[in-house]
Structure formats: structure tokens, C-alpha cells
Design a protein around this nucleic acid. Structure first.
Lengths: 164, 164
DNA sequence: TATTGTTATACTCTATAACTATA
DNA sequence: TATAGTTATAGAGTATAACAATA
């Protein structure tokens, strides 16, 4: 596994690197990724958030609130995103008969098709971002990021405000 | 190296994950990181971008344009950030005598002190973000992200507009 | 009363164009 | 003419509060 040693090499001579913090590094790369997706999705008339929603919905129908948490978008601003997608018949909203306050959101056939057509573009952007890594390293990075992501859901960053 | 297998495990059962794209995952985590830093820096009267600038300047003086590229901020909006920092005497701007169009930006003693006082908070946020990873995995992730970051500088994402 | 979704509002961040001064 | 920095402006993204419907 030469991928391992190669990666472990970096942090020592990384003192001079502009980004001493992994968190800041994530924020910076996140912005880069955002911009690239934004540009790539423009011809499709979608924004990165629309893609996030569709990708999440591919796993199956879900509550609006659940979707909001899944893609880390405030449920307030998710309303507008879903309105856009519903207007284009890419998703469907229906009342939950168990609890009529809830909306169950599902991906529509047209949405699945649109998503399938976008898969290549998405893969291309990912490939561009990870161009400097070998195949094994990309898998490794993906796994690590997924775990960081799962952990980030639980912990709201040490802010325990019991009463206030 | 059990860290390796543990990480490699994920991608296979990650099909159901909301984020199929590593790029989207980066964007999502980047936003999480951004929010946490934003909240943590608020009492210090700084924004994440200010921290990025100070962190980058710790490596030594640099041109404004160079700094903009280093922290991936448009040179246009960097002006305001540096104005804020200069007002608080955290950084210094001086003309480059070689080319009087350039401004050389350096961190001021007060800025270095402020940064030192912030180091613990920064480390705490990083630790929170990477709480789900073991020490060896954190180093691994950091190395991979640094390489991705370096690669992202070169390639503007396949947009070759020679004449336009 | 609490929760889900919605709307309205204001605030921050970001992108674009135009201007000044130096080269 | 081209470059470094600045300014001004509009656009997109984000956060907050208040509301209606349902539990």
C-alpha cells in the first residue's frame, strides 16, 4: 500500500502550507467543489443543492425534514428547492397519511432520468477534484470523508445550551 | 494499519448514502466546517476568511494577489478582509519597491499574538470535526486533502476559454 | 402546547464591471 | 497595453422570525 506512506508523508512538511487547519482546508475545498458543480449544472438549469436533493432522494422517499437533515440544508430553504424541482416534475410531494403535517418527498421518473443523465458529469467533476490521487487513495479518502460526515451529523460542535 | 481497512470498508455499503459524489460530500462538509469556525470566531470579532488570511501570512509576507490565490479568495474581496485586519493592526501592508503596484502583506506582532491565542480554538474545532477518526486516520485524511488542495490550484476544472 | 411546512425579511457572501496607479 | 489594487453594485446564498395546519 504505497498510497499510505505517500499520504502520511505530507503533514510533516505541511507546516508551511497556507492551511494549517483541516477544517479550513475542508471549507476551502468545499468552495472549490461548489463552484465547479455550480458551473457544470448551469446548462441543466440546476443548482448544486438541487443535485444534492435528487441524489439523496435516489435512496428512496423521505420526509422533507429528513431530507433537509440528510443534505444539511435548512428546512426553510429546502422549500424553495423542492418547489423548483416539483415545477419541473423532477420530484413529487404527497401528504403522509399517518401524520398529515408531513410531506413525503420522492423522486419522479423524470427526476431519476435527469439524474442518470447527470451522472457522467458528476463523475467527471469528482475525477477532476481527485485527479492528484490514485484509485486506491480516492476510495480511501471517500471512506474517511463519509465517516467524518456521519460523525458531523451527531455533534453540533460542542454547543450545549440547555436553557438558553 | 487497521485504519486502512476500516476506511476502505465504507465505500461499498455507501451506495445508500445521501452523498454519492465525493465533490458534494466535500461541499457539505465544507459548509459544516465554515459554520463552526464562524461561530467560534465570532467572539474574537473575526470571520473564517480573516483566519485563513492570518494562517497563510504566518508562513511569511506575500503579495495580495499571492495571498488571494493561497486562500482561494477573490483578490477583490480580499481587499475588505485586509482592511479589517489592518484596522485592528493585525497585518501590515507596504508597497513593493521593486514594483510599486504591488502590496506586500505581512502579519503584525499583534496578529501573530491573536493567532496564537486562537490556535487552541482552531485545534478544538478540527478535533470536533475529526472526532470519528483515529489519530492515524486524521493524519492520513489531512495528507490526502492537502494533495487534493494542491491539485485543485492548478486545474481550473477543464474550462479552456482561449479567446473569449 | 409542540411539530411540519410555509412565507417574508434581512443579512452575508460572492461575482462582475469599472476606476486609479503603476509598469 | 497590461497588471495590482481598489471601489461600487447586483446577485446568490443563508439565517431569523412569524404564520397556518395538524398533532
Amino acid at each position: 500500500m504505497k498510497a499510505l506512506e505517500q499520504a502520511v508523508e505530507a503533514p510533516d512538511d505541511a507546516q508551511q502550507s497556507p492551511c494549517t487547519s483541516v477544517g479550513r482546508l475542508l471549507a476551502s475545498l468545499g468552495r472549490v467543489s461548489m463552484r465547479r458543480f455550480s458551473a457544470a449544472l448551469e446548462p441543466a438549469g440546476l443548482k448544486p443543492r438541487h443535485l444534492d436533493a435528487l441524489l439523496a432522494l435516489r435512496a428512496g422517499p423521505i420526509t422533507q425534514q429528513g431530507l433537509a437533515e440528510a443534505i444539511r440544508v435548512d428546512s426553510v430553504q429546502l422549500v424553495g428547492l423542492l418547489n423548483d424541482l416539483e415545477t419541473e416534475a423532477l420530484i413529487e410531494r404527497r401528504r403522509d397519511q399517518t401524520d398529515r403535517r408531513r410531506h413525503i418527498v420522492g423522486i419522479a421518473p423524470k427526476g431519476a432520468a435527469r439524474l442518470a443523465a447527470l451522472d457522467a458529469a458528476v463523475a467527471e467533476i469528482d475525477a477532476g477534484l481527485l485527479a492528484g490521487l490514485e484509485a486506491s487513495e480516492r476510495i480511501l479518502l471517500r471512506g474517511l470523508l463519509l465517516r467524518v460526515s456521519q460523525n458531523a451529523d451527531d455533534e453540533p460542535a460542542g454547543e450545549a445550551c440547555p436553557t438558553a
